[in-house]
Design a protein around this nucleic acid. Structure first.
Length: 355
DNA sequence: GAAGCGTGGAC
DNA sequence: TGTCCAAGCTT
């Protein structure tokens, strides 16, 4: 296909997709309805929450967050530990740290008003190529080329791009740029995402319902699900660790020792149960937070991270311990309010069960 | 470009 | 049951 005929075909894509979007768009809490003006704060918050996270997970968390911190000013003034606890369970906790940093920057450096251009947005922490383009297009109507996993999949199929990801992203971006319209770029981006979610799915795409089927090179091959081609994944190694549950009795009831994890690295900045080192072979009681009579529970807790699986032994002790260990004592019956990442919430439940 | 960084749902 | 995958960003 030469450049000229390609561009003519490309101009058909946006009208077809926007027409489909006007009839099938999802009604989502962070999405402005036709005629409404988008709220940049809500657009930004939703885009960050949705990074690598499903719509079903984000829905209730978005509502709770908006009820608590409805705008940049309120979020910028929020205490660090409250923000981190509010993000607990959502994963990728650098997002919460960057969310707070960006809100402070908007208030301090931009007079409380979100920057309007993709280039300016890109300078804020946590706004990468995708999110800056998405906010510019959806909240401010700028013509920005929005490329996420949906767009990669739709684009790779539409143009039958066979170069494996991640190298294939360059060609996909060129193709996405070619089909992005001057007007309604935000709707176009959201249309691609809705199409990727409902029609052009990773497995068993519903091509018979697709408004772009007649123009889809991937469909023409007879095996559209073969796109995008991806590089082989590496095996996920297994690691082992121990969680330490140190308890003491107080008049109001039992309390457990919690620590705050370092700001950088896995589960950074989050409240947590103390752990020993995470190593390649099963450890026992190395790295305990205090000298005490540790008792190892039967059974372990297994938790999958992106790049390794963790198997955790559970060690329990009841005070008094020698000396005052670093951390904070938390009422056991109020542990749900501590904002523990899922790994530790599950471990706590297993410990409550097993002792 | 590769690695590090969470979690839950679908199949 | 294990594997794949999701509206990615930072270093």
């Amino acid at each position: 296909m030469d450049a000229k005929s390609a561009s003519i075909a490309d101009t058909l894509i946006a009208p077809l997709l926007l027409d489909w979007y006007d009839r099938h768009r999802r009604d989502l809490p962070w999405r402005a309805r036709p005629g409404e003006t988008p709220d940049p704060y809500r657009v930004w918050l939703s885009e960050v929450m949705l990074q690598q996270t499903t719509v079903a997970t984000v829905r209730p968390r978005f509502a709770a967050w908006i009820a608590r911190w409805p705008d940049f000013e309120s979020l910028a003034a929020a205490p660090d530990d409250e923000v981190m606890a509010a993000w607990a369970g959502l994963g990728y906790y650098a997002r919460a740290r960057n969310l707070l940093r960006a809100a402070k920057a908007v208030v301090a450096d931009h007079g409380g008003t979100f920057p309007r251009t993709e280039a300016e947005l890109r300078t804020l922490p946590g706004l990468g190529a995708y999110t800056a383009a998405a906010v510019a297009a959806i909240a401010f109507g700028e013509r920005a080329v929005v490329v996420d996993a949906n767009v990669e999949r739709v684009g790779a199929r539409l143009f039958a791009i066979a170069t494996p990801l991640p190298a294939g992203r360059a060609a996909i971006r060129v193709a996405a740029d070619a089909v992005t319209p001057e007007r309604r770029a935000g709707d176009f981006a959201q249309a691609l995402m809705d199409l990727g979610s409902a029609i052009c799915t990773p497995k068993k795409p519903r091509c018979l319902l697709c408004p772009l089927q007649a123009h889809c090179a991937g469909f023409a091959t007879g095996a559209p699900e073969a796109f995008p081609v991806k590089a082989a994944k590496k095996a996920r190694p297994k690691r082992y660790g121990t969680i330490f549950w140190l308890e003491r009795e107080r008049a109001r009831g039992p309390e457990v020792l919690l620590v705050r994890r370092p700001d950088k690295g896995l589960l950074g900045g989050m409240r947590a149960l103390p752990t020993g080192p995470w190593v390649d072979e099963a450890p026992l009681l190395e790295g305990a937070p205090a000298l005490a009579s540790w008792r190892l529970l039967a059974g372990t807790v297994e938790h999958g991270f992106t790049h390794f699986t963790l198997e955790l032994a559970l060690a329990v002790a009841t005070g008094p311990a020698q000396g005052e260990p670093p951390g904070e004592w938390w009422p056991v019956d109020a542990l749900a309010t501590a904002g523990l990442p899922t790994l530790f919430a599950r471990a706590a439940a297993a410990i409550a069960e097993g002792r």
